[in-house]
């Protein structure tokens, strides 16, 4: 079990507070900069603009730098850094439905990635851009956010079970 700077008893109270402050800061700056991951690739493909793309690429580099920094400072909080060296190469960090073979997780990366890119560019933004647009007063973006909320419950109650059952029938069980 990984341990961070705060002990468990305090961390359980700190989680909503710290993440709320983080979100406020990110939301404020995202509105000011028009931050968008999908938009970065789109603007580069259409006009060779790199402004938004630089934001997303910086995020990847900065997260590596940040994890590296805190891996030095608080090693116990970064148990499996650098993931590719501490576990099997194609095993993902937990988050997707568990209990399937490595090949299934490659599919789970490739197919949703492609579809999210395609859908989001047609909608005009990635999830964070649409969330920010909802706050700016765009009603269609607000409906997108409500869809995400409904989707959360649907996924937990039904879809995750279907996906795991389907993958196991197709022979992708662990």
């Amino acid at each position: 079990m990984a341990t961070g700077i705060l002990p468990m008893e305090i961390a359980v109270y700190a989680v909503p507070v710290v993440t709320l402050i983080l979100g406020l800061l990110i939301g404020y700056l995202a509105q000011r900069s028009g931050y968008c991951s999908i938009g970065g690739f789109r603007d580069f493909a259409l006009f060779r603009h790199t402004r938004l793309l630089s934001g997303y690429l910086t995020l990847i580099l900065a997260s590596f730098a940040g994890y590296l920094l805190f891996w030095f400072l608080v090693p116990s909080s970064m148990e499996h850094f650098f993931w590719a060296f501490t576990s099997d190469l194609f095993v993902p960090i937990p988050g997707a439905p568990a209990g399937l073979s490595p090949a299934a997780y490659l599919l789970f990366s490739a197919v949703p990635g492609f579809l999210i890119g395609l859908i989001a560019v047609l909608l005009g933004g990635c999830p964070i851009r649409l969330t920010v647009m909802a706050s700016e007063g765009s009603l269609k973006a607000a409906w997108f956010f409500i869809g995400m909320c409904v989707g959360s419950i649907l996924f937990a109650a039904l879809v995750s079970g279907w996906v795991v059952a389907l993958m196991k029938t197709l022979g992708f069980g662990a």
């Binding site: 002990p7 961390a11 931050y35 968008c36 970065g40 990847i60 580099l61 994890y67 920094l69 400072l73």
Partner: peptide, 22 residues
Amino acid sequence: PAFLGALIGILAAFSQALLISA
């Protein structure tokens, strides 16, 4: 945007260092 990208990256690492016990 690059400033926000850098900020999210560092803050995400910081929040893991701070809260992972939970």
